[in-house]
């Protein structure tokens, strides 16, 4: 999805920028934003997302393909983002960003910062008896902060992000998320999405100089299911008008 460069280096896709800006959750939001933008999915007032075409046509990236597959029948907005954020396609996206020299692998940042913090705390306790150990406390606190603060983005990655502008609504999602704002306007409004729908996405801070590259902006709506009503009517049994035969349509035969 990289298009020819206009400035320095290849221009990144909105989805890639989204990943750089706030991790896989943001990249997932961006993929969904582009699908809405192109009319490839529709969102209902209650936040049910459904694909417009069943064959996945129009997907430009692996993440988008995966989203379209997921929403062949209605799925809640927040759940779509959460599922896409955890999709295996996201690992490929991260690998690509690492290979482009824009990100570091999260392992290098070491998840063990808290181990140093624990050591520091232990030394602090022992320091009550042996004050000299307090020097060690300070040392380990500093090591811990250094590890925690180590950025997932490389300098090149930071530059890419700094250069990006929310020049259209998909890029606005990439840089600020559906719950963010662009020039005082909520990004969700650019898509005419009800606030209640946008709020199903967990708020995630943009990546600043220090942040966690592996974190996902995921919704907590993991058990919302499809969100289809089901009232036990019997024509279509579910009465559920979504998917699979609500209303009065037939079962489609032996397929």
């Amino acid at each position: 999805m990289t298009t020819p460069a206009t400035g320095r280096g290849p221009r990144l896709s909105p989805e890639q920028l989204g990943y750089l800006a706030a991790g896989p959750g943001r990249a997932a939001e961006t993929a969904l934003a582009r699908l809405i933008d192109r009319g490839l999915v529709r969102v209902s007032r209650d936040g049910l997302v459904t694909a417009v075409h069943r064959d996945g046509q129009g997907a430009a990236t692996g993440v988008e393909r995966s989203v379209l597959e997921h929403v062949r029948t209605a799925v809640r907005f927040g759940t779509v983002v959460e599922t896409a954020a955890h999709d295996s396609e996201m690992r490929l996206l991260r690998t690509l960003l690492v290979s482009l020299g824009l990100m570091r692998l999260p392992r290098r940042r070491s998840a063990s910062w808290w181990v140093y913090l624990v050591v520091a705390a232990l030394l602090a306790v022992l320091g009550i008896a042996v004050p000299a150990l307090l020097i060690g406390t300070v040392f380990f606190v500093l090591v811990s902060l250094r590890l925690l603060g180590r950025n997932a983005l490389t300098t090149a990655g930071k530059e890419e992000l700094a250069r990006a502008a929310a020049s259209d609504r998909v890029l606005a999602v990439a840089l600020h998320g559906f719950r963010g704002e662009v020039a005082g306007t909520p990004v969700g409004d650019l898509f005419e999405l009800p606030r209640s729908v946008v709020r199903t996405i967990q708020l995630k801070k943009d990546r600043k100089s220090t942040s966690d590259g592996a974190g996902a902006a995921v919704s907590s709506c993991s058990s919302c299911g499809s969100g289809c009503g089901s009232s036990g009517s019997s024509c279509s049994s579910g009465g559920s008008s979504c998917g699979g035969g609500g209303g009065c349509g037939g079962g489609g035969g032996g397929d």
């Binding site: 529709r42 209902s44 609500g246 209303g247």
Partner: peptide, 20 residues
């Protein structure tokens, strides 16, 4: 239908609707 509520609202020439 719930999935297409916004579509139904936006479509031109919808004179009436039916709900299940």
């Amino acid at each position: 239908r719930p999935e297409i509520d916004l579509t139904v609202e936006r479509l031109p020439g919808v004179d009436f609707v039916e709900v299940v």
